[in-house]
Amino acid sequence: MSTASQRLVVGITGASGAIYGLKALELSRAAKVETHLVVSRAALLTLNQELGLQKADLDGRADFIHAASDIGATIASGSFQTMGMLIAPCSVKTMSEIASGVTSTLLSRAADVVLKERRRLVLMFRETPLHLGHLQTMVTLTQMGAIMMPPVPAFYAQPQSLEEMVTHSVGRALDLFGIDTGQVKRWGGMKES
């Protein structure tokens, strides 16, 4: 049985960027972190559209996969200890549900549990441009203890591929849980010309 310090909940929503959630699972596994995955219905559509994956293709990518409708899953309870939850990518709908306390699925319920237990919640919010409602919702979530972390490329790392950009962004998100994947190109200061 894993300890809470080695257990992470990963949510994938229907926002563009499903690859971020899959990369989080891959890097977490390599770091020997137990993962609990919950995928929204819309995410299944996005996984298919962007990556050609079906629900069955998720098998084996996480230690445990929970149906979004399974409100009685372990991750729906604060007594199930975790290091927190990463939602990658995070849609406007999911962000709004969490901020309002409306937990219509296991994904938003698990996030709500993380917040009420004062654990780390990181949202890789995927939307642009932003209107005032988005910004106010982000402020509300930040005040509640969540960390808003849009997946912004780090060009100082001089990525050579989309894969490297995704890996770096997800590695930085996992840094927020104390998970060092060994895949992040750290800033080393300005180079002299």
Rank of each mutant, 00 (worst) to 15 (best):
128 T>W: 03
128 T>N: 09
128 T>V: 14
128 T>D: 13
128 T>E: 13
129 P>N: 12
129 P>G: 06
129 P>F: 10
129 P>W: 12
130 L>F: 15
130 L>P: 09
130 L>W: 10
131 H>E: 13
131 H>P: 02
131 H>M: 14
131 H>Y: 15
132 L>C: 03
132 L>N: 13
133 G>I: 12
133 G>C: 15
133 G>E: 04
133 G>W: 10
134 H>K: 06
134 H>V: 02
135 L>S: 14
135 L>E: 11
135 L>C: 11
135 L>Q: 11
135 L>F: 08
136 Q>V: 05
136 Q>C: 13
136 Q>T: 15
137 T>A: 07
137 T>V: 12
137 T>R: 03
137 T>G: 06
138 M>S: 12
138 M>Y: 10
138 M>L: 10
138 M>W: 05
138 M>N: 04
139 V>F: 10
139 V>A: 11
139 V>H: 11
139 V>I: 15
140 T>I: 06
140 T>Y: 07
140 T>D: 12
140 T>E: 06
140 T>K: 10
140 T>G: 02
140 T>L: 07
141 L>T: 01
141 L>H: 00
141 L>V: 04
141 L>E: 01
141 L>D: 00
142 T>N: 14
142 T>M: 13
143 Q>A: 08
143 Q>F: 00
143 Q>K: 03
144 M>T: 01
144 M>W: 01
144 M>E: 07
144 M>D: 05
144 M>K: 12
144 M>P: 00
145 G>H: 04
145 G>I: 01
146 A>L: 05
146 A>R: 00
147 I>E: 02
147 I>K: 03
147 I>T: 05
147 I>V: 08
147 I>F: 05
147 I>R: 06
148 M>P: 03
148 M>R: 06
148 M>G: 09
149 M>P: 08
149 M>A: 13
150 P>T: 04
151 P>G: 03
151 P>L: 07
151 P>S: 14
151 P>W: 06
152 V>G: 07
152 V>A: 15
152 V>W: 08
153 P>H: 13
153 P>C: 11
153 P>Y: 11
155 F>D: 08
155 F>Q: 10
156 Y>N: 10
156 Y>A: 12
156 Y>S: 12
157 A>S: 14
158 Q>C: 13
158 Q>V: 06
158 Q>R: 15
158 Q>W: 08
159 P>H: 03
160 Q>V: 03
160 Q>F: 05
160 Q>E: 10
160 Q>C: 05
160 Q>T: 09
160 Q>N: 13
161 S>R: 08
161 S>W: 10
161 S>M: 08
161 S>I: 05
161 S>G: 13
161 S>Q: 11
161 S>T: 08
162 L>C: 14
162 L>V: 15
162 L>S: 13
163 E>N: 11
164 E>R: 09
164 E>Q: 14
165 M>I: 15
165 M>N: 06
165 M>P: 01
165 M>V: 14
166 V>W: 05
167 T>M: 07
167 T>P: 02
167 T>I: 05
167 T>R: 02
167 T>Y: 00
168 H>Q: 15
168 H>F: 04
169 S>R: 01
169 S>G: 14
169 S>I: 00
169 S>M: 14
169 S>E: 11
170 V>R: 03
170 V>C: 04
170 V>I: 15
170 V>F: 09
171 G>A: 11
171 G>L: 02
172 R>T: 08
173 A>Q: 01
173 A>F: 04
173 A>Y: 04
174 L>A: 06
174 L>R: 00
174 L>H: 00
174 L>V: 02
174 L>E: 02
175 D>N: 11
175 D>I: 00
175 D>S: 09
